[in-house]
Design a protein around this nucleic acid. Structure first.
Length: 445
RNA sequence: UCCUCAGUAGCUCAAUCGGCAGAGCAUCCGGCUGUUAACCGGAGGGUUGUAGGUUCGAGUCCUACCUGAGGAGCCA
């Protein structure tokens, strides 16, 4: 009886009789010889059917197999440099072929397709090699996030998805009917994180978050995954130290475990190998100066207008890209204008127009992948900021409570998983970084 | 929401000045014992996004709408 194997481990079975189960990825018809590329989720292996070596009815099945038909194949593993596949270089000489289902005409061909067509067929597109590589890297990034935080003294404490009020501002929330009262899908777990921080010291939440922004860009989704660590007794510098260790660990783990997938994606890994602490740190003031200096050097008036920035404005996509291009790895930009950031961020002492906030900009135009800050821990100042912003303090009574019972300096940040995956994989658009992207005008499949 | 571009066979695209709607892939049939998105021969496959208009004649020009893409704003 043949051994049932995973295709990823085929090299261990050279010369042995094995069985693989899976789907036909591709077939080349050479008459009395059929090359079947079979995938099982772990890899792709070429299986070779010779007319002479198979019962007539089984060879006839091989000759007729359609793309994505499900099969069980047994045969002998042999090394062959010509054999394509993942990992490749080994193939199976078929001795037995069992058909589970002959697939109907499969819509996705091994060729170029349009974006709309592929997104309409996302439930099938995830079977394609590029998507296989991307989603495996995504899984590793998520696993590394959890492992790293768990190993560095953080406790996972889940925060709710159904929430009574806005985390940041009310214009970007999905509203739902909660038995007659309005509720919202969470856009952040941060406020709850701060409560949990008071209980456990270092905590994180990790899950989907929702923004109803009508954004139509390569880096926005309506539903995206975010990990948000929150740490008691951390200041901004400690926060940056922690973030650069964390982000470097993510990138280096993918490099160590997914050379094969990065190769499939044709990712230039030299830029990733460089992602190790320390990262450059510049203030918002310096960033504005650098951008305006760059704008001054530029002759193209369009480019000049794109780069020029007035102090106080938040960065747009061209600003972030231009800033990131000045460095060979991610760069921290800190001390943003208070007015441009969330109400709970700690003002800089003696200079309240800027706050103790920091964004991390990824290289190669991937933009902001983390955003964080020291939080205001003085109850009066927090109450004052809430009044200034004009939001209803009643909704934040429990949050203000946190400052009444042993308030401590603390800080935290959020990292967007999809943007990180897009950057690590070198993808032009975020839509391929999540299995089923929720975008403006797309809720299917 | 704004700007730009696009919509033709299942898919990717072509169609000159407004004049017979075509190719490759996929599918089906036939050939081939080393293919790498094989190759060779044959066949079927069309409400040109929708509605209206101009014209002897519209895939092509005009108007409105729908859908999508790229960019902007907002953000992770």
């Amino acid at each position: 009886m043949a051994t049932l194997i995973k295709i990823s481990e085929i090299a261990q079975y050279e010369g042995q009789e094995v069985t693989v189960r899976g789907w036909l990825y591709h077939r080349t018809d050479k008459g009395r010889l059929q090359f079947l590329q079979v995938r099982d989720g772990t890899g792709i292996v070429q299986c070779v059917a010779f007319k002479k070596e198979l019962p007539a009815e089984q060879f006839e099945i091989a000759r007729k197999l359609t793309q994505e038909s499900s099969v069980v194949i047994s045969g002998t593993v042999r090394a062959d440099k010509r054999a394509p596949g993942v990992p490749g270089k080994f193939e199976i000489g078929i001795s037995q072929l069992e058909l589970l289902q002959m697939a109907e005409e499969y819509p996705i061909q091994p060729k170029e397709h349009g974006v709309e067509f592929l997104m309409d067929h996302r439930h099938l597109w995830v079977r394609s090699l590029r998507q296989w590589a991307i989603l495996r890297i995504r899984a590793t990034i998520i696993r590394t996030i959890r492992n790293w935080l768990d190993e560095h003294g953080y406790l996972l404490v889940d925060t709710p998805i159904l929430t009574p009020a806005a985390g940041e501002n009310t214009t970007t929330l999905f509203e739902i009917d909660y038995f007659g009262t309005p509720a919202y899908l969470a856009q952040t777990g941060q406020l709850y994180n701060e409560a949990n921080m008071g209980a456990f010291g270092k905590v994180y939440c990790f899950g989907p978050t929702f923004r109803a922004e009508k954004s139509k860009t390569r880096r926005h989704l309506m539903e995206f995954w975010m990990v948000e660590p929150e740490m008691a007794f951390y200041d901004l510098e400690m926060l940056m130290d922690e973030e650069e260790q964390f982000v470097s660990a993510i990138v280096q783990t993918v490099l160590a475990q997914h050379r094969q997938e990065l190769e499939i994606l044709e990712r230039d890994i030299t830029r990733l190998e460089n992602v190790k602490p320390p990262f450059a740190r510049i203030t918002y003031d310096e960033a504005v100066e650098r951008l305006n200096a760059l704008a001054a050097e530029t002759d193209d008036p369009e480019r000049k207008a794109e780069l020029a920035i007035t102090w106080g404005d938040d960065f747009g996509a061209p600003h972030e890209t231009a800033l990131a291009e000045m460095f060979d790895k991610p760069v921290f930009v800190y001390h943003y204008p208070t007015a441009a950031k969330a109400f709970y961020m700690q003002p800089v002492e003696g200079r309240p127009e800027v706050c103790r906030s920091v964004d991390l900009l990824a290289p190669e135009g991937y933009g902001e992948i983390t955003g964080g800050s020291e939080r205001i821990y003085d109850p009066d100042l927090l109450r004052q900021r809430i009044d200034e912003i004009g939001i209803n303090p009643e909704n934040y009574a429990w949050y203000l409570d946190l400052r009444r019972y042993g308030s401590v300096p603390h800080a935290g940040f959020g990292l967007g998983v999809e943007r990180t995956v897009a950057w690590v994989c070198g993808l032009p658009h975020i839509r391929e970084t999540i299995p089923y992207a929720r975008m403006l005008n797309r809720l299917y499949p």
